[in-house]
Amino acid sequence: MASGVKPRVKVPKKAAAGDVITIKSLISHKMESGQRKDKEGNLIPRSIINRFTVEFNGQSVLDMTMEPAISTNPYVQFEATVPEAGDFVFTWYDDDGSVYDTTKSVAIG
């Protein structure tokens, strides 16, 4: 597991049913591209987050495949529909097999 990985997600606490909300997500991760070399000239092995998924009450919102060309601390902004109260589940998949996730609840009101 890469060190210092911390997911941060911004989701409104409340929304009207059927509303489209904007979600901002960021996870601190070095996203080593596998192209860089260390001081001795050896390639630093690739270590990135290769997949990011968002689900709301089990239904898919976004499924994103990431390549090394995504910047350090991957940031993604997108929009989601909220049909009812429930939970957004955000999941990041690391190259080394680690899975990071976080959950945000949205109330209707």
Partner: peptide, 30 residues
């Protein structure tokens, strides 16, 4: 796709039924 990168693929967004709009923004390396 970044056509001039050593690995040209950047990202693929697959939108699910609850996507509010088929749009997304992110930050990439060139």
């Amino acid at each position: 796709v970044a056509t001039g990168n050593p690995t040209p693929g950047v990202a693929q967004f697959n939108f699910g039924p609850l996507a509010g709009s088929q749009s997304a923004s992110t930050r990439i390396r060139l």
